[in-house]
Amino acid sequence: MKKIGVITIHSDYNYGAFLQAYALIYILRKNGYFAEIIDYRKIPNHPRNDSFPLNIIIKLLNHKREQRYNTFIKPMVGVHTYRTLNEIMNNFKENYDILISGSDQIWNPRCGGLVNKLNPAYFLAFVSNKRCKKISYASSIGSYQFNKDEQNQIKRWLSEYTAISTREQSGKEQLSTFINKEIQVTLDPTLLLTKDEWLEQAKPYKIKAKYVLVYYMVEIDEVLEYARKIADLNQWKVALITNHIKRHPLVDINIRNCGPAEFITLFYNAEYIVTNSFHGTAFSVNFNKNFISIFKKDSPQRAQSFLNSIGLSHRLIKNIQQIDSLEKYIDYKDANIKLQELRNNSFQFLKNAINQ
């Protein structure tokens, strides 16, 4: 059996990061491969720098949520932990047959933990291709534009890859300007799993009222205005996934301390979803929910590319007035057919890359 190591962003306490990391290992194991996450703990994208005693209070408040995160991902992670770039670059221990640089924005210098620098670990530079095969699955650049020096570095690193795929069309197009290799666009790993496969991982989180679920990355006031309008039109509550104790004036229900397994349940049980997150959009579609994806000004490419590919680009909206022109219920018939085709093609890319 081929032994596969996946490097991705899995140690930030972010639902999308954890769920995409989990999903890729799940789908590989389900199809008969030995696979695990390489436990490289990069510096978080947005580390907190709270002073004492606030840092202790924050840690205590987040303990339950972090515990749920860690419990969820632990079965997918390898035994060796690398806490610095130096450790993984100079002391990599495992003997894998194949290495995969996984999904999420691992190729975006703003997300790799090195403060606006490319992270060589996410380009598998810690091991030679003479030692194992190197593959990229749905690696994302986000909205970042590489400069000439970065292009030269990437060109050198990716020359050792036998197969390359990105998560967005824009990423493929940018890499194709300086990489002389075939590049395929593949689905985010969360979309490789069906609704039923995700529900097997879910844990209860009961909310008695019917609710519009809000999952946001930035610009909370704007996102909540959209949700409030939809909730008021339907006499629903606004439920917000948040780490904050204080409730926003536009919110009826604060959802605190939920882990990835509870996150799945919250999406599945929602009447409607309002999000400006790519993974919020992905789970909305996978669960066939009525939703709007709000145009994320600094990085719209991820949701845009995905929704275009399944014929739901009109669900990505830029102003609140567009709500009035949207159909009340989304007809998912064609979108589901397209999603299944993309799912099949994406897994076939992965299978071919591993076995070739």
Rank of each mutant, 00 (worst) to 15 (best):
E160D: 08
N257W: 02
E225N: 14
E200Q: 15
H244N: 10
I25W: 12
I179M: 06
T177F: 06
S309N: 11
S140F: 00
P53M: 08
G142K: 00
Y329L: 13
E219D: 14
G112H: 05
S305C: 08
T186H: 08
S139Q: 00
V127I: 15
S309Q: 11
T265V: 04
F34V: 05
V79Y: 12
T166A: 04
G16W: 06
K328D: 14
I88V: 13
L60D: 12
I38S: 01
I58W: 15
I37C: 04
A227H: 13
L187C: 12
I164T: 01
I38R: 05
N90S: 07
D334C: 02
N286V: 04
I183G: 14
W236D: 03
N345C: 07
L19K: 10
K195A: 15
E168D: 04
E87P: 04
L28I: 00
Q201R: 13
N91H: 03
F295L: 15
I56Y: 12
L307T: 11
L85R: 03
P47K: 14
Q301D: 02
Y332D: 05
F349C: 07
Q169R: 10
I98K: 00
A209T: 10
H279K: 04
Y122A: 07
T162K: 06
R131G: 03
S309L: 08
I241Y: 01
L191F: 09
D188C: 00
I183R: 15
L19D: 08
G311T: 06
A335N: 09
N276F: 12
I241P: 06
N45S: 14
F291R: 05
S277A: 15
Y40V: 07
L85I: 10
K351G: 03
T8H: 06
A353D: 02
Y144C: 05
I220Y: 12
S103F: 01
L250A: 02
V223H: 12
L326Y: 09
R83S: 11
K297W: 07
T186F: 10
L342R: 12
N243D: 08
K338N: 03
N286E: 10
Y215T: 00
I25Y: 13
Y161Q: 02
F126I: 14
D50R: 15
N290P: 00
F123L: 13
N45C: 11
N129M: 09
I56F: 12
V223N: 12
L266T: 08
E168C: 02
D104H: 02
H279C: 04
I207F: 07
L316I: 11
G142Q: 04
L224K: 09
K134M: 07
D298E: 11
E197Q: 13
L250W: 00
Y211W: 05
L240M: 06
K155L: 04
Q301W: 00
S309K: 12
I135D: 02
L224Q: 10
I207K: 06
Y96F: 06
T281F: 01
N308M: 10
I179Y: 03
L175E: 14
P53V: 06
K59W: 12
N257Q: 11
